[in-house]
Simulated assay, not measured.
Amino acid sequence: MKVYLISLAVGLLVGILYSMLNVKSPAPPMVALLGLLGIVVGEQLIPWIKNLI
């Protein structure tokens, strides 16, 4: 969990830096990020269901 929080903090820091320098972020559009989120949730869903059963 600590790695995820560090990653989030660094991402926020870089986002703030990009905003201050008025640089456009190379990150994909929101639709692509939501797709990646769906992949991660789907990947974790099956083991979670198996543990419940």
Rank of each mutant, 00 (worst) to 15 (best):
A9F: 11
L34V: 13
G11Y: 00
A32V: 12
L36I: 07
A27W: 05
P26F: 04
V23M: 11
L36K: 04
P28A: 15
V41W: 15
V31A: 13
G38Y: 09
G38D: 14
E43T: 10
I49Q: 05
L33Q: 03
I46E: 12
I6Y: 06
V10S: 09
K50C: 03
L33C: 00
L17I: 08
A27Q: 09
G15P: 00
G11A: 02
I39K: 12
L21A: 08
G42E: 15
L8I: 09
S19P: 00
I6G: 00
P29S: 13
M30N: 00
I39C: 14
P26I: 07
S25F: 03
V14M: 09
L34M: 14
E43Q: 08
P47G: 09
N51Y: 08
I16Y: 01
V40I: 12
G35S: 04
M20V: 15
L37E: 04
Y18C: 02
G42D: 11
P47A: 05
E43I: 11
L21H: 01
K50W: 04
P28N: 14
M20L: 15
M20C: 07
K24N: 09
P26R: 09
I49R: 13
A32S: 11
P47L: 05
W48Y: 11
N51H: 09
I39H: 14
M20E: 14
V41N: 14
V41D: 09
L33Y: 01
I46S: 10
S19L: 11
L36E: 07
K24V: 07
V10H: 07
I6W: 03
I49W: 14
V23I: 14
L21W: 04
I6H: 01
Q44Y: 10
V14C: 06
L12T: 02
G42I: 10
G38S: 14
G42P: 06
A9M: 13
A9I: 08
L36V: 08
G42S: 14
